[in-house]
Simulated scan of single mutants.
Amino acid sequence: MRKLNIKKLLYDTIYLTFGCVITAFSVNYILKPNGLITSGITGLAIILERYININYSYIYYFATLIILFTTYLLMGKKEIMKIVFLSVLYPTVLLVMQNYEFKFVENDLLLASIYFSIFYGAGVGMILRKGFSFGGTDTIARILNKKIFPSINVSYIMLVLDGTVIIIAAFAFGRNIALYSVISQLIVTKVCDFIMFGVGTKLYKLEIISCKHEEISRYIMYELGRGVTLFNIKGGYTNKDKILIESICSPNQSIMIQRLIKKIDPAAFVKILPIVSVWGKGNRFIDINIED
């Protein structure tokens, strides 16, 4: 068992390092040389570099340390373990790769924006697929949701944070650069989804039986912004009354739910079914009123 754990640790370390290298490659050799900008902590660091003349990698390092410390104080030790490894690894890879000068794309902002998005989305997708996080705006959004805005979904808070960075970029680098960053953000999302889930369905129905059904339901509704339906059922083998949670969500959200269940109730029963389409009101649902 110990040998397997060491082997898995080594594999995960190599895998995550490779994901960081791809992500850092896109930033150091495509984004920065072409004067482009992105959202999140990386984008904010590049903007600050313009005004305080400090290497953006050091600013990123400092920002992630602040986020780590804040997460530990406000969210606890469990939450910090999700981001501590990459909060150190990724900025280190950024700094090391800066020692080698290279430009992947030159003198074509549209082409640079597209190639940056492909590499960046691939790297981020690899990281998220393993259940890790860079500890950026997603972590800040969870802190704000828990401590200040409990009634606002985490995804909406993230949208506001990333949108704010892009608006600031418009003032710092010009409107066109900010518009390129919007295009990049859309492509990054699509590439990230492809790396994590392939070209299959974009919606899943989750059926969950768990003794922690209240905590899971609250997480799905108030942190992910998805609807939940509860059914009273009876186990055929145990003959005990149980609660079945049913929810329809995106692939990324299904992985987030999986992480939560893995932490609070590893004995839970979870069924995941691909959905072709959904009519109704909701993210990625089809409005029945506009269907022919």
Score class of each variant (00 low, 15 high):
R2G: 12
K3E: 11
Y11K: 13
Y11S: 08
D12T: 14
T13R: 07
Y15M: 01
L16V: 09
T23C: 10
T23I: 11
A24M: 01
S26G: 13
V27W: 11
V27G: 05
Y29G: 11
Y29K: 05
L31S: 06
K32C: 11
K32P: 00
N34G: 04
L36K: 05
I37W: 00
T38N: 10
I41G: 00
T42R: 00
G43F: 15
L44K: 03
I47E: 12
L48D: 05
A63H: 03
T64E: 06
L65V: 13
I66P: 05
T71L: 09
T71M: 13
T71F: 08
L74D: 07
G76I: 13
I80L: 12
M81V: 06
M81G: 12
K82V: 08
I83Y: 04
I83M: 10
V88K: 00
L89R: 12
L95V: 02
M97G: 04
Y100D: 13
F104N: 03
E106M: 11
E106F: 06
N107H: 07
N107D: 14
A112W: 13
Y115D: 00
F116R: 02
S117H: 07
S117C: 09
I118G: 00
I118P: 00
F119L: 14
Y120Q: 15
G121V: 00
A122R: 00
A122I: 12
G123S: 02
V124N: 12
V124W: 09
V124H: 09
K130N: 11
G131L: 01
S133C: 10
G136Y: 04
T139V: 15
T139K: 02
T139M: 11
I140A: 01
I143A: 07
L144R: 02
S151Y: 10
V154F: 02
L161I: 11
D162H: 06
V165I: 15
I168M: 14
I168T: 14
A172F: 05
A172C: 13
V182D: 02
I183M: 13
L186E: 08
L186P: 00
L186K: 14
I187M: 07
I187R: 02
I195M: 01
G200L: 07
T201Q: 11
L203E: 06
K205E: 13
L206H: 02
E207K: 11
E207N: 08
C211P: 00
E215C: 03
I216V: 11
S217P: 04
R218N: 14
Y219I: 00
M221W: 05
R226C: 06
G227M: 09
G227F: 09
L230G: 08
F231P: 12
F231D: 05
G235R: 10
G235T: 08
N239R: 10
N239C: 05
K242D: 02
I245M: 04
E246Q: 11
P251D: 02
N252A: 15
N252I: 14
I255Y: 07
M256Y: 05
I257R: 03
I257H: 08
Q258C: 09
Q258F: 11
L260H: 09
I261H: 03
K262C: 01
I264G: 04
P266H: 03
F269Q: 07
V270L: 08
K271N: 14
I272V: 14
L273I: 14
V278F: 08
G280M: 04
